[in-house]
Design a binder for these strands. Sequence first.
DNA 1: TCTGTACTGTCATCATTAAGACAGAAATGC
DNA 2: GCATTTCTGTCTTAATGATGACAGTACAGA
Lengths: 229, 229
Amino acid sequence: MAELTKFWYLENFNLFRNLDNESMEELKRITSMQNISKNQPIYFPQEPSKSIYFLKKGRVKLTRMSPDGKEMILGLINKGEVFGEMSYLDEDERKEFATTLDEVLVCAINKDDFKQFVDHNPELNLRLTKLIGLKMRKYSERIEELVFKDAGQRVISFLLRLADENGKQIGDEIFVKPFLKHQDIAELTACSRQTVNSVLTDLREKGVINFDRKKLIIQNKEELKKRVG
Amino acid sequence: MAELTKFWYLENFNLFRNLDNESMEELKRITSMQNISKNQPIYFPQEPSKSIYFLKKGRVKLTRMSPDGKEMILGLINKGEVFGEMSYLDEDERKEFATTLDEVLVCAINKDDFKQFVDHNPELNLRLTKLIGLKMRKYSERIEELVFKDAGQRVISFLLRLADENGKQIGDEIFVKPFLKHQDIAELTACSRQTVNSVLTDLREKGVINFDRKKLIIQNKEELKKRVG
DNA sequence: TCTGTACTGTCATCATTAAGACAGAAATGC
DNA sequence: GCATTTCTGTCTTAATGATGACAGTACAGA
């Protein structure tokens, strides 16, 4: 069951697989590549929503801000993933910030060019719908987590997700590098920086994980899983 | 700005607008109508995900259950709305319960028949993607609310949403009927039944709303808006 | 290499809200 | 029309986690 879900996820991975040469040429023509340095904005709220982005290298965070200035991170985008896709659905303006977490290489496509491209490659229709459906599912899982889990469990769930998405298994440890600062984890898991810190240091003391500013090492994944149920 | 957003929402409303007669005939052939009485299940978690549903009459709630048996309501479906759409994206099994809240008339389409139908009516592709994108947006707003607002504000936001979606303006009051029991509101807003009750009775004492088991009357919408920021 | 800034780690205090208990009202089923 | 179940309203208690403060550490830029 868990495996079937995994499969369903992976299936959505590469939007442009199996396109013919001509289409790939057209795709190249309508996209523009950009190198962006660390901690730079890609787009802002209220900005007109006119491109879809494909992340080639690095990480991006999507954040929303409350009227009184608190921040929350809606999600992290990794290499190979798409963001800003709401412009394809004629969203008029951005609702969130997209900010680089590292040196980033990103590929932008104007939404109208992209719509035309999809018209020429109708097999992309279902893939796009699936891609959006996949994000929807992630959001619904996030809601579930906020409702059912306490702060500590949410932080641990986040570590497990990080291990799945960015971890490298070396021996029986999982390495995640780069790691995130506590404040970012707090904004992703809807708790305070102090709570993140106390959960992490507690796990470190017990030998379940190890970490510093640059990396996270998961030494006992089973123990983490046990703690989130 | 608020108006543009509203527009974006409404645009997604009728999936089957402007289809030709032949297509409408085909649609009728592949759909099956069902009358279902109050408080009955439509589908369960783990059930194979093989149909998409269109709600013609009544209300449906989608609920998830935590491993330890707590419930939460992922969303309410009103007349004219679609649910179970993840089957179209090859979800293998349902993740939630769909339960009727009233007498319901619902129209089911097998996902494979529906895919074929969409192939014959490619204009549905973008509409479907938008429909799913719309749900995604709703979920993202829900996450935002869980993170930024306290329990009382979430309940009030819910009342305002209910007013928008199901309310009838009569004079300067907004009537919502049927209403929901406190437990359901609690499961929708991620707080306890007791908190819902105290928020509602407090608002009633102050003359902002009135309610009983059957209906909700919003007497001062502006006051409610003021309280959620 | 120094210096200012950003991040980590820790603690005490306080607010929010969940949970349990129970009485009374309303709805449902027989 | 009566009995049983479900829902509302209210209280008290207790736990979770936010907040603010501050010292120590790492980092980046001059």
